[in-house]
Amino acid sequence: MSATHPDGTGDASGTEGDAALDPRQLGAYFVLTEAVSLLQHQVEQQLQAEGDLSYVQFQLLARLAHAPGHLTMTQLADGVVYSRSGLTYQAGLLEKAGLITRSPSPDDERATLVTITDGGRALVARLLPGHVQVTRRMLFDPLSDDDLHHLGDIMTRVRDHMRAQPPRSAAPRKRRPKPPAPPPA
């Protein structure tokens, strides 16, 4: 798909010779990344103060709390867009704290099933009101109902476009090159 600059000339897609975003695209990008960073910072502060959890740990617990059963590690990694190794580390911390359990899948020897414990559910329930309060204050209070509708529509389209690419956790693992065979003796 090709796009043109606002003046109708050239290709603004950032491909083949045009590596720059036009000023409106650049402005929108910086506003979006700053808003996401500000929101995430406030949420992280609330989660750390009230539950001694990181943002990623809360995301994992919240996904598990709202899942109809267990999830695989891959499903969790895809859902929170986190690396396999990072997720394994975070899951280990949550398991050590008694907030989740991990077990091998009876259906797929490569999969690990993750389930939230009653303690994990209780922690999510305790943190959720503060999480909602911060989110509402930082993100939703300045928006009208019409703004909220448009924001939801726009971000859904952007997310769906991004999700059309394979998730990082589903990408094939890089294989290590085999060491060269020793020379014949």
Rank of each mutant, 00 (worst) to 15 (best):
H150L: 11
Q75Y: 00
D160W: 04
K96Y: 06
G79S: 02
M162A: 13
G92L: 03
K178N: 15
L127C: 00
H149V: 11
A35K: 05
L148S: 10
H150P: 00
S169I: 10
P182M: 08
T9W: 09
P180H: 13
P129M: 14
P182A: 12
L61P: 07
Q133L: 08
S105N: 05
D11E: 13
T117Q: 04
A20G: 08
A49C: 02
G69D: 08
A91F: 06
L123E: 05
S83L: 09
R126C: 07
T33L: 13
T112P: 07
M138L: 10
G130Q: 02
Y82N: 08
V114L: 05
T101H: 11
G51H: 10
R157K: 06
G27L: 08
A12R: 01
T74V: 13
R102Y: 00
S169E: 07
G69R: 02
Q25E: 10
R136A: 11
F58W: 09
P184W: 15
G10S: 02
T88H: 08
P68G: 14
A171G: 12
T4S: 15
Y82P: 14
G8A: 06
V132P: 12
A28G: 03
A181V: 09
D146G: 08
F30H: 13
F30C: 02
P106G: 05
F58N: 02
S83I: 03
R102M: 00
S85T: 15
Q40G: 13
Y82M: 12
H5V: 01
L127F: 07
D141Y: 01
T15G: 14
S83Q: 11
A28K: 05
I116R: 03
L64C: 06
D146P: 00
A62E: 06
G17T: 04
R159V: 12
P182V: 13
V31R: 07
Q165K: 13
Q59L: 12
L32I: 10
R24Y: 15
K178C: 10
L47Q: 12
A19N: 07
L87R: 03
M73V: 03
A62T: 09
R173K: 10
